[in-house]
């Protein structure tokens, strides 16, 4: 018997800056890669999805209206807090993904660095995605990227923290808000990451994290009329077609499910940010 009984954490959802249980009252057992009990996670419902979309929509105006410099600092702050909790994440990732501690530590370090990488993009993405356009007439004509809106993200199933950070950061750095479905079997690092966001000046509702059955939650997001885009990364192979069809109902932007899981440790490129940006072109006459 240990001298002292540990105080275990209750893992809940992260919605609108708060940590509610599922309104359904459901939970499901999370085990380590070896089958050891780790925790009970909340099993989110359709209603939780809708609440999360409402939270994300509510947060959009302020987050997208913040200065890019501010968003960059907020995400950098999240990287600082993530780094500060390094040991905790190494434990969780090691248990969740069945990695040894060195390997898990490398993954957590990469997640911190990934967040820093994306934080730096906030005030630069407009300079690679925007333009001044030489039109044939007396007009000042320029194009600027703007966030698409509320983005649903089906996070990678196998990479519980690094994969998660790698798909969420590019969505929110440009001003989108996100509803994220965490890895179904390894959701605990995602909820702990929610604690990082909640304590690092990321406004409530900018990132909302749901745990539960991807197959149950994904169709609700794909067909939701107030979701503007969806990243299908974590969808089951056989589900992608149905999800894309549902997404067409309000012409969602779809980042398709990849054929193979990428190497999340590899250097990223800007394409995940660009997938969730709109281009606005403004014309104004020039004259006296």
């Amino acid at each position: 018997m240990p001298d002292r009984l540990a105080v275990r954490k209750t893992y809940k959802l992260y919605v609108g800056g708060a940590f509610p249980r599922s309104e359904s009252g459901r939970s499901y057992e999370i085990t380590s890669a070896e089958g050891r009990f780790l925790a009970n996670a909340a099993m989110a419902s359709r209603k939780d999805v809708r609440d999360a979309v409402v939270a994300a929509r509510g947060a959009f105006a302020k987050w997208s209206g913040a200065t890019a410099y501010n968003r960059g600092q907020v995400l950098y702050r999240a990287a600082e807090v993530l780094e500060g909790r390094r040991a905790q994440f190494v434990d969780e990732v090691a248990a969740s993904e069945g990695r040894d501690r060195d390997d898990a530590a490398g993954t957590v370090d990469a997640a911190v660095d990934r967040l820093v990488w994306y934080a730096g993009w906030s005030d630069k993405i407009a300079q690679i995605a925007g333009s001044a356009n030489a039109v044939a007439g007396p007009y000042f004509n320029f194009s600027v990227p703007e966030p698409t809106g509320v983005v649903a993200v089906l996070a990678p199933q196998s990479s519980s923290l690094l994969g998660l950070v790698s798909v969420v950061a590019p969505v929110v750095v440009s001003g989108n808000t996100a509803v994220v479905v965490a890895s179904e079997d390894a959701p605990l690092p995602a909820i702990t990451f929610g604690e990082v966001l909640a304590t690092s000046d990321v406004p409530g509702g900018v990132v909302n994290i749901l745990t539960g059955r991807t197959a149950e939650l994904a169709p609700v997001l794909a067909s939701h009329m107030d979701v503007n885009a969806i990243d299908l990364h974590g969808a089951a192979a056989g589900a992608a077609t149905d999800l894309e069809q549902a997404a067409a109902e309000n012409v969602k932007r779809v980042l398709r499910r990849p054929d193979a899981e990428p190497d999340w440790r590899a250097d990223p490129d800007p394409h995940r940010m660009l997938a969730f940006l709109e281009t606005k072109t403004v014309w104004h006459p020039m004259g006296v």
């Binding site: 356009n133 039109v135 194009s143 698409t148 503007n228 309000n250 281009t279 606005k280 014309w283 104004h284």
Partner: peptide, 26 residues
């Protein structure tokens, strides 16, 4: 909206990106 015309309207140019937000396409 993907195109905003200020003090003008319905101007088009090959150098100027055109297209929509939301259900106006992507």
């Amino acid at each position: 909206a993907g195109v905003v015309w200020a003090n003008t309207f319905n101007r088009f140019d090959p150098a100027s990106p055109f297209g929509g937000y939301k259900e106006s396409g992507f």
